[in-house]
Amino acid sequence: MDDNDDADLSPIIMLIKFPRLRKLSARNRKENTNLEVDTKLLQEMLKFGSLKSNSLPIEKLNIYHYYMDFEPHLLAYQKTWNKLSIHPHVELDIRHCGYLPDDQKETELEQELSLLEQRIQRLQTQQEGQRRATQEQQPDDPRFKSRIDRCQRILCVDAQCWSCGYHFEHCWKCVPVCQGCKGKRIPPMANDNQIRLKYRRQLQSKHQPMADEDEFSVFR
Score class of each variant (00 low, 15 high):
residue 2 D to K: 12
residue 3 D to Q: 05
residue 7 A to H: 06
residue 7 A to Q: 10
residue 9 L to Y: 10
residue 10 S to H: 04
residue 11 P to T: 02
residue 12 I to K: 11
residue 14 M to C: 07
residue 15 L to Y: 06
residue 23 K to P: 04
residue 23 K to H: 12
residue 24 L to E: 07
residue 24 L to D: 03
residue 27 R to V: 03
residue 27 R to K: 14
residue 29 R to M: 13
residue 31 E to P: 03
residue 38 D to L: 02
residue 39 T to I: 01
residue 39 T to D: 00
residue 40 K to W: 04
residue 40 K to Q: 07
residue 41 L to Y: 10
residue 43 Q to A: 05
residue 43 Q to P: 04
residue 45 M to D: 00
residue 46 L to N: 02
residue 47 K to I: 00
residue 51 L to R: 04
residue 51 L to T: 03
residue 52 K to R: 13
residue 57 P to V: 05
residue 57 P to N: 05
residue 57 P to I: 03
residue 59 E to G: 09
residue 60 K to V: 04
residue 66 Y to T: 01
residue 66 Y to K: 05
residue 67 Y to D: 12
residue 67 Y to V: 02
residue 68 M to C: 08
residue 68 M to Q: 11
residue 68 M to E: 08
residue 69 D to S: 11
residue 70 F to W: 09
residue 73 H to Q: 08
residue 74 L to G: 03
residue 75 L to S: 10
residue 78 Q to I: 12
residue 79 K to G: 03
residue 79 K to C: 06
residue 82 N to H: 06
residue 83 K to P: 03
residue 83 K to Y: 12
residue 85 S to Y: 02
residue 85 S to F: 04
residue 85 S to I: 02
residue 86 I to K: 15
residue 88 P to L: 05
residue 93 D to E: 01
residue 93 D to G: 04
residue 93 D to C: 02
residue 94 I to F: 00
residue 98 G to T: 02
residue 100 L to P: 00
residue 102 D to F: 15
residue 105 K to D: 01
residue 106 E to V: 15
residue 109 L to P: 00
residue 110 E to S: 09
residue 110 E to T: 07
residue 113 L to G: 02
residue 114 S to G: 13
residue 114 S to M: 09
residue 116 L to P: 00
residue 116 L to Y: 14
residue 119 R to I: 04
residue 122 R to G: 12
residue 124 Q to V: 06
residue 125 T to D: 08
residue 125 T to L: 15
residue 126 Q to D: 12
residue 126 Q to Y: 14
residue 128 E to N: 07
residue 128 E to T: 08
residue 128 E to M: 11
residue 132 R to M: 11
residue 133 A to I: 05
residue 133 A to V: 12
residue 134 T to E: 14
residue 135 Q to E: 11
residue 135 Q to S: 07
residue 136 E to Y: 15
residue 136 E to D: 07
residue 138 Q to H: 09
residue 138 Q to R: 14
residue 140 D to S: 08
residue 141 D to M: 07
residue 142 P to E: 09
residue 144 F to Q: 10
residue 145 K to L: 14
residue 148 I to W: 04
residue 151 C to W: 01
residue 151 C to M: 01
residue 152 Q to W: 03
residue 157 V to S: 03
residue 157 V to N: 04
residue 159 A to S: 15
residue 160 Q to S: 12
residue 162 W to L: 03
residue 162 W to E: 12
residue 165 G to V: 08
residue 168 F to S: 11
residue 169 E to N: 11
residue 172 W to Y: 15
residue 173 K to S: 09
residue 174 C to W: 11
residue 176 P to Y: 10
residue 177 V to F: 10
residue 180 G to Y: 13
residue 180 G to I: 03
residue 181 C to D: 12
residue 185 R to G: 03
residue 188 P to K: 00
residue 189 M to Y: 10
residue 190 A to S: 03
residue 190 A to L: 07
residue 190 A to M: 06
residue 191 N to T: 01
residue 192 D to K: 00
residue 194 Q to K: 14
residue 195 I to Q: 06
residue 198 K to W: 02
residue 198 K to C: 04
residue 200 R to N: 08
residue 202 Q to H: 07
residue 202 Q to R: 12
residue 204 Q to I: 11
residue 206 K to C: 10
residue 207 H to V: 08
residue 207 H to Y: 11
residue 211 A to Y: 13
residue 211 A to W: 04
